[in-house]
Design a protein around this nucleic acid. Sequence first.
DNA 1: CTGAAAGCGCTAACAC
DNA 2: GTGTTAGCGCTTTCAG
Lengths: 349, 349
Amino acid sequence: MANVTLKKIAETLGISTATASKALKDYADISNETKRKVRELAQQLNYKPNSFAQSLRNQESKIIGLIAPQIVHHFFANIIKGVIDAAEAKGYLVIILQSGESYETEKKQLQLLLEKNVDGILISLSDRTVNYKHVADIIKEGIPVVLYDKISKLLDCSKVIIDDRKAAYNATKYLIETGCKNIAHIRGPLKPQTTIDRFLGYKKALSDHGLDFKDQLVFETKNLSFEDGYEIADRILATSDPIDGVFAFTDLLATGALIRFNEKGLKIPEDISIIGFSNWFLTKITTPSLSTVNQPGYEMGQKAFQLLLKEIRNKRENKESTKEIVEIPTTIIPRNSTKPRLITEKTNN
Amino acid sequence: MANVTLKKIAETLGISTATASKALKDYADISNETKRKVRELAQQLNYKPNSFAQSLRNQESKIIGLIAPQIVHHFFANIIKGVIDAAEAKGYLVIILQSGESYETEKKQLQLLLEKNVDGILISLSDRTVNYKHVADIIKEGIPVVLYDKISKLLDCSKVIIDDRKAAYNATKYLIETGCKNIAHIRGPLKPQTTIDRFLGYKKALSDHGLDFKDQLVFETKNLSFEDGYEIADRILATSDPIDGVFAFTDLLATGALIRFNEKGLKIPEDISIIGFSNWFLTKITTPSLSTVNQPGYEMGQKAFQLLLKEIRNKRENKESTKEIVEIPTTIIPRNSTKPRLITEKTNN
DNA sequence: CTGAAAGCGCTAACAC
DNA sequence: GTGTTAGCGCTTTCAG
């Protein structure tokens, strides 16, 4: 089954490949009669333009690359879905790669994508990435790059983020408004910006509402795992402070704590309220269901592709890169691990 | 920053592009001295071969396509991870597409992949796909195709599957061995093969162990949702039979039922045991944790890529397609929603 | 050991 | 309206 090429079509029709090519692209200077004949034959032979040849000529592949730290991950999977859907709608396909939170892998994968001459790259940095030269180099080369979620302020390119500080602020404020007075925070490891921002949001919400910030009410975890949350629940119960609220860095930690509190016979939310972060599926099925902060991954993915497309077009038209930073709003999802709010008031994002 | 091409390297070195090309590919008939010089300059200029030109010459892209019904899905995400990892290790990149369980989308996406001249395609059929011509046509054209998980027996190509019937048989048998006598089954909609196979496995396990199969103990769901499971729990409790065990088609259904049983004050597993299917993350965090059947997605993904690679190589060497069907073994994961086993016996996969 | 030349399939400038 | 030609960047004979 030899492949059908333009040449073959041109030969059988007794015309030149140039004419055939133009006919298929509906050029104005080709007679309708010829166009009809070419199109018919192409259809009949099931002609498909060779994308390699097209790419070689046009210097574009209509393929973009995406690197995520993880893909077996509710939030990232949603982002990826958003990217793929948006890309497909604009005629782009997406190569997916996962760095597994490894800086070395991330670096290697960027090279792989460049070698494939993708038209642009979407990347969320690994937690262990502390040096950004590998990304900066690519941006400098003029390859369209958009950062999403795990970004670095040191990189000069378009970005899609959520405002972690504001979201954490609102989550903590929500606990306060439901009557909590002694609120603990289960935070992530020291490094990534998200951890810091959520911590700062928590801290600011306390002080804005006249509550004391106490260092000993902040618990740091290494792995952000269910087990970490479970274990920290015990430490929370062991403090001398009468803790009545917990804001966890992520739903998994919150769930670990929730289950441990249940085991210990605490009443949630009466004795202790918990709010998580991310709105993973599992928050719906814990007992009680977990209040959380919704991180709209799908929308982030769509937006990230849109920004990338803009950069791709800028590049093709030799325009300056626009370097937009888009913030996707988050919302509080109240469920049964928190009490009803005392003061009714609109949550700003 | 004009791109570095072989030509440029050749010119600066005063040699021909042919020589430069061969030098980089370590051909035996090039002097070590020349090789060294070419390699050095290439390195220095950060030369990257243009993949379009290479693909055009070699008729291969080193890119494969993967279509899944869903990607925000624990099992499929694991498969995808397995595919990407295995592919990357062999120098292939993976374009991901999701059909959203739509036959039309699936058909369109196959075309998109063909238009991009991918070297091969991995596809899991949508539940709503009942006509297989779109896939059969591609196989007939000689494009390497491997089906994974959601397959059709009518398609003649390599496949990676789990033996749903055997797995369901073992899950049901497990309930029986832990002392259950009246076992209900929450099944999926009538059509997909997996539903049928798991149902048949359930039925066979009953009869092999001297238990009566009763039609009214089989509950069909439309959406395989958490809510479906929840609702069916009520119907299970309303039957006249003293049901003491439930085998659910999937973990989500099992979880819905489990939560409803909890609400109704039933003791799990003493009053009623439950076993799910898939070993999703959520099974670890329900109260009690959910016994289930592990479906090794990552391994399936890896195997699927290996089979595809074999087909790709067969094609290139003009060999016959091998059309292997590989079955990945499943295992029972006992947790706290089932009682301890009475008879200790090795579970065969 | 090296290089000239052809060609993968397509597109676009330019001629007729 | 249509065809000629050149060329995208690479690989691979084949001749020297």
